[in-house]
């Protein structure tokens, strides 16, 4: 009796204030998470000399020239564009390939299904840096060196295992009655996949999409090898180039780094709601 009464009451007030203890704890944890990041961003508002003299201080006076210099001097915007193109295409590719493969692994019964699944998950176990040399030789042979595709396709390949690991249980969790109903309504399995399952999977797809995007955005080694033209460089390479060229310019490097992490943070902010929903669904299974 009391249980059913309590539930509607909670629903009527969806966002009530929590207890002070909750807030203290939440603030403490959020603070620890953010403090170092804030430190880097704020340090961009100082000069190298200021940082050398007193590493822990806040900007006093606030120096705008460091950020301004970084934005103008470096090829920041161009690199931003390259990073974006690569990350977006790669994300779409991983999600597309991943959901197809996960669908099969989740909802078809066939001999060798578990073997196939294990095959994909082996990719998780190998350090990326080691296979890089043979990978590059391969890309060169396929004439993919120094192209966007030469970065995108391997990134998709590397991201597939984690994508399948997350998507498979999610897709498997949908009850089979759903599929039967679709059959009765005249759809075959593919139709079921396309018209019913995919729309319902949006949270999980966004989850793996965000993880893929972040992975591509932060990826350094592969673009370093494949993209020789400066004009194709991505942001991590840009940070590297900048710090090598102006290696003593601590403030500039921090400013550049801050700018480089902004897009990923922004993207995550926008997609945050979907991510948690997606993970929720994934761990249901």
């Amino acid at each position: 009796m009391a249980a059913t009464v309590a539930l509607p009451r909670a629903n009527r007030k969806p966002t009530k204030w929590g207890s002070p203890l909750t807030y203290v704890l939440a603030l403490a944890i959020a603070g620890v998470s953010i403090a170092p990041v804030a430190y880097v961003i704020l340090s961009g508002f100082r000069t190298t000399g200021q940082i050398a003299a007193d590493p822990a201080a806040l900007p006093r006076p606030w120096v705008l020239s460091t950020y301004a210099r970084v934005i103008q001097q470096s090829k920041f915007w161009h690199q931003l564009l390259n990073s974006t193109i690569i990350a977006v295409v790669m994300t779409l590719g991983v999600v597309a390939l991943g959901v197809c493969a996960s669908f099969v692994l989740a909802r078809y019964q066939f001999r060798g299904r578990e073997v196939l699944y294990t095959y994909f998950t082996i990719g998780l176990l190998f350090p990326a840096a080691a296979g890089i040399l043979p990978l590059y030789l391969l890309l060169k042979d396929l004439n993919l060196a120094n192209t966007y595709a030469g970065v995108i396709i391997p990134e998709v390949a590397f991201q597939l295992p984690i994508t399948v690991v997350i998507l498979r249980p999610f897709l498997a969790a949908f009850p089979s009655e759903l599929e039967d109903a679709a059959q009765i309504d005249g759809a075959d399995r593919l139709g079921f996949f396309w018209r019913i399952l995919l729309p319902l999977s949006r949270p999980a797809l966004v989850t793996v999409g965000v993880l893929a995007f972040v992975a591509s955005w932060n990826s350094f080694l592969l673009p370093l090898l494949v993209l020789q033209d400066d004009s194709l460089h991505t942001l991590p390479l840009g940070v590297q180039n900048f710090s090598a060229q102006y290696s003593q310019d601590t403030a500039g490097i921090l400013a550049f780094t801050s700018l480089a992490m902004m897009p990923a943070l922004l993207f995550f902010t926008l997609a945050e709601r979907q991510i948690v929903g997606g993970i929720q669904g994934a761990v249901k299974g």
Binding site: A129, I132, L133, F220, L221, L224, L225, V239, Q240, S243, A244, S247, I253
Partner: peptide, 12 residues
């Protein structure tokens, strides 16, 4: 970064 750049540029 300079060093890692040097190392990874070695790879490159």
């Amino acid at each position: 970064k300079r060093r890692s750049g040097a190392v990874l540029a070695l790879v490159a």
